[in-house]
Design a protein around this nucleic acid. Structure first.
Length: 477
RNA sequence: GGCGGCUUGGCCAAGUGGUAAGGCAUCGGCCUGCAAAGCCGACAUUCUCCAGUUCAAAUCUGGAAGCCGCCUCCA
């Protein structure tokens, strides 16, 4: 089955055929680095990380570009508020972004360019637009893109410029030829970051950097452009206008947009004060739980972040690791070169517009079947069963490489989890071990009242005991 | 006002016109001294509602209701 991708431009799933055989050019809009990143940024980055990994797995040579917007009104505002220079601010948040994304096991893109390092390209791009009559320079130093010079304006977002003019909420700027014209270059005020240009000292508008940088790294025309749904209009619409107005060919073949993360069924917003930052989430949940959560729903749908969901996801992850640990605990040979039925199903799900939710369902299903087989045969299946289980094991390990989860050694995983629980709950392991020994004695003496008393006592501290053939183990609930 | 999306069991969630994956929870059973974990079984005659197309609809068409997003910085 070939890869099918939902294209915002057509509103349909389409068979993915790259412009150049065997190669994929992908550009994803990265953050404006003026503040800490939130869980919504994480979703976008994780989703496109999965897409990047899958394309690579399909043997495409992928050039993946994700930019940093490091010149912007919001950065300047922050600089004025804090007294820090814009560079200090942007460097700080770029570092933070990289650290958090590394923690989330996100692969670095091929290139992560910054707008400020491409001012020359941006200026050249604007000059091309002006010389083609697609943009104009006005008194005061502003340069605007002329909407009316681009007949297909609105094709990505399905908007009609006339309707928008009628319902425009923005105060009309006298200097613009049309109220919908947008800024390519704006003159700098005193103390703001600025660069010399044919129109005087100034700085680029927001949309132009992506057109200029994608052209620089991927050319006039490339395969995939992605970002959050909110970027469809005006950002991506404007990028299309800029790039296609100059080059006259299709800018991007496939537009991919991810849905939002809601917090307790509400949109994240400043007024609600419910911005949930990645660092907060990382403080409470392991990176794997976060990734699993972000991939547990199809990338285009909204996803709701709340404590209950995270708990649930966390239990699900335990289940997978428990199965892997169980397999590793048998005498079976788990190495196998071939890929099996689970992988096949997984590949089909990924090829169907990166359906990670479906893919995860398949993994759970395989785990259920595997557990059943192990149970029925007391952990020692017939050769045929061993083969099946080895296959499932290998398939899950391969899937790890795409989803970026289930990568740890299961024993390590549970050890780490336990250690975290112990630390969080301020539990004294020696005390727990001691109580377990006392309980073992009580049990041997058939003093079950005492044994249960100890267990209840530990339960009250969120410590759960599991009696197995090798003795009693404990974990933090 | 313009454009787009969503509505599947208690909750989360896949679903490709062919007769409802999966997870969490719940209830029985196996196991256990009793539990826990794991396993087995039960759990949507039905997919917001109405009408239509079809041999066949959660899936297609039309209509209604509710919810949400974008149109202003936003992943």
């Amino acid at each position: 089955m070939s890869l099918n991708v939902y294209n915002t431009l057509s509103g349909k799933k389409e068979v993915f055929v790259p412009i150049h055989e065997g190669k994929v050019g992908m550009y994803v809009c990265g953050p404006t680095v003026y503040d800490t990143s939130h869980i919504g940024h994480a979703r976008s980055v994780v989703v496109f990380d999965m897409i990047y990994r899958w394309l690579t797995r399909l043997n495409y040579t992928v050039t993946y570009v994700r930019n940093f917007t490091d010149v912007d009104d919001k950065i300047i505002k922050k600089s004025n508020e804090t007294g820090d220079s814009c560079t200090t601010i942007t460097e700080k948040y770029i570092d933070e972004f990289h650290n958090e994304m590394d923690a989330l096991n996100v692969l670095r893109p091929t290139m992560a360019p910054k707008a400020t390092e491409h001012i020359r390209h941006i200026i050249e791009f604007i000059q091309m637009l002006i010389s083609k009559g697609k943009a104009y320079h006005v008194e005061g130093g502003d340069v605007y893109f002329s909407i009316d010079s681009f007949g297909e304006y609105g094709k990505l977002s399905g908007r009609n410029p006339d309707d928008m003019r009628a319902g425009a909420r923005i105060a009309v700027d006298e200097k613009k030829q049309s109220p919908l014209d947008f800024t390519l270059w704006k003159p700098a005020k005193q103390g703001e970051p600025s660069w010399e240009s044919p129109w005087g000292k100034g700085r680029p508008g927001w949309h132009i950097e992506c057109s200029a940088m994608s052209y620089e790294y991927l050319g006039e025309s490339f395969d995939i452009h992605g970002g959050g749904k909110d970027l469809i209009f005006p950002h991506h619409e404007n990028e299309i206008a800029q790039s296609e107005a100059i080059f006259g060919c299709q800018f991007v073949k496939y537009w991919i947009h991810n849905g939002f993360v809601d917090i307790n069924n509400e949109k994240m917003s400043k007024s609600l004060g419910n911005f949930t930052m990645i660092k907060e989430v990382l403080a409470n949940y392991s990176p794997e739980v976060i990734r699993l959560f972000l991939l547990s729903k199809h990338y285009r749908s909204p996803i709701d972040y709340n404590e209950d969901s995270m708990q649930e996801i966390s239990l699900g992850l335990d289940r997978i690791y428990a199965f892997l640990e169980r397999l590793e605990g048998t005498n079976m040979v788990l190495e196998t070169e071939t890929l099996g039925a689970l992988w096949e199903g997984f590949a089909e799900a990924m090829n169907d517009d990166f359906n990670s939710a479906k893919a995860l369902g398949l993994v759970f299903e395989a785990v259920k079947k595997g557990n059943k087989l192990l149970d029925r045969t007391h952990n020692a299946p017939e050769p045929k069963g061993c083969e099946t289980l080895a296959q499932v094991y290998a398939d899950i390990r391969s899937i790890s490489g795409i989803l970026g989860i289930f990568l740890k050694d299961p024993t390590e995983y549970f050890k780490t989890k336990k250690a975290k629980g112990v630390a969080d709950m301020a539990i004294d392991p020696a005390m727990v071990e001691d109580l377990i020994v006392q309980r073992a004695t009580a049990r041997r003496e058939k003093n079950f009242a005492r044994a249960d008393e100890i267990r209840d006592q530990l339960q009250a501290m969120k410590i759960v005991l599991e009696d197995g053939p090798q003795g009693t183990i404990w974990r933090v609930e």
